[in-house]
Design a protein around this nucleic acid. Sequence first.
DNA 1: GGCTAGTAGTTGAAAGTGTAACTATCAACG
DNA 2: CGTTGATAGTTACACTTTCAACTACTAGCC
Lengths: 154, 154
Amino acid sequence: MFLKGYLPYRLNLLAELTSESTRQIYRRRHGLTRPEWRVLVNLAESPSLTASELCALVPAHKTKISRALVALERRGWVKRESDARDRRVSHAALTPRGRSAFARIRPEMEAATEAMLAPLGAEDRRKIDEGLAVLERLFERAPPATGPGAGNRD
Amino acid sequence: MFLKGYLPYRLNLLAELTSESTRQIYRRRHGLTRPEWRVLVNLAESPSLTASELCALVPAHKTKISRALVALERRGWVKRESDARDRRVSHAALTPRGRSAFARIRPEMEAATEAMLAPLGAEDRRKIDEGLAVLERLFERAPPATGPGAGNRD
DNA sequence: GGCTAGTAGTTGAAAGTGTAACTATCAACG
DNA sequence: CGTTGATAGTTACACTTTCAACTACTAGCC
């Protein structure tokens, strides 16, 4: 079978399988889309970020980031303030409610991931990490001409 | 950073990066969606398949399969015949045109994948395969309660 | 036969995504 | 200043995906 050994197929399938249980958490339990969840994570790790910075960090296309920020702002989890020097940019930061939401969701996500990997021993985990690290290095070296919609270029 | 070491995130990101160049081929060059492409591949490897069988093989939710089959049929690449014994099921098969389309696209896909992996030596490739194989075994053992929308259950 | 329950596949509406404009702003150069 | 070209972010529209019915059919049971 052609597809079975085909790397992009294998990765897509495994990505879906491993994301399934965690997706239930941010989606069903907390009503977040994946871009919203990722924006939340990144904002939790920074005092504030611009949309462009989020584009690079998430990574995601700027329309996804824009819509995720609108949704999180509407929910009261994010506050934006426009930059004093450059009024095109605005800085997004989590509100206290956003911060506490993240503190609530994050452990659920980690628990779900750990539950999924529970059957694996240290050696298996090392193999997974090593394999993925090879690919990650590959894409660092050969910088994505245009990432997965990661760019901000038009 | 929380996300950086987070397995579903890493897999999703790598899946997107590795799929980027091949996606251009089936999408831009040949006007196929991903489900259409996968249905095409699976039909190319079987004399005929029902929608349910495709759901399990692709794997994908039955609405994706249904729509992919409609599109491929409209394009003249797939022919469907309803089963004589059970008139709910119909058997899809590639037409000669579908077969030759696949024969045209497949090598392009393989070349793009190989080009992407070109910088990697045998040892690195083995590591990737080993890591992914660990995960694949994990999900074989713990069969996806409901796959990535793979099911046909309602 | 005629219920009932279940399966194969399709359809419709809502949500999410991708692409391409578009607005607003800045910076550089005349 | 004011024009030109770039950048930050939003909006509009078409397309894809998801979810929940829905149709058509089969099978078991009385």
